[in-house]
């Protein structure tokens, strides 16, 4: 039962981090910072998927949400400008 409690605690901590990162990403005026907060939220989600025993999802989510998606957004930010007015 102990191991289940630890997993649930880590799950709750990851969920909390993801909520905070989402709020920061929504509020950031600097779009580059918003992308970094969004990646942090994705890292928290990746940990949650891992603790919910879905390693297949972890592999694709880590690559897409932390690698490809922020890089696409950075390419776009390079074209449209870094600061939201």
């Amino acid at each position: 039962m102990m191991a289940v409690d630890i997993v649930m605690g880590l799950l709750a901590a990851s969920a909390l981090i993801s909520v905070i990162a989402t709020v920061l990403a929504v509020q950031a005026r600097d779009l580059l910072k918003a992308v970094i907060f969004s990646a942090l939220q994705s890292v928290a989600y990746t940990l949650m998927y891992f603790m919910l025993m879905a390693p297949d999802i972890v592999l694709v989510y880590a690559a897409v949400a932390v690698g490809i998606y922020p890089l696409i957004l950075i390419l776009l930010i390079k074209k449209v400008g870094r600061y939201e007015v």
């Binding site: 297949d56 592999l59 694709v60 690559a63 897409v64 690698g67 490809i68 890089l71």
Partner: peptide, 8 residues
């Protein structure tokens, strides 16, 4: 999974 990892 492998394809999206390599695409990074």
């Amino acid at each position: 999974q492998a394809g999206s990892i390599i695409a990074v």
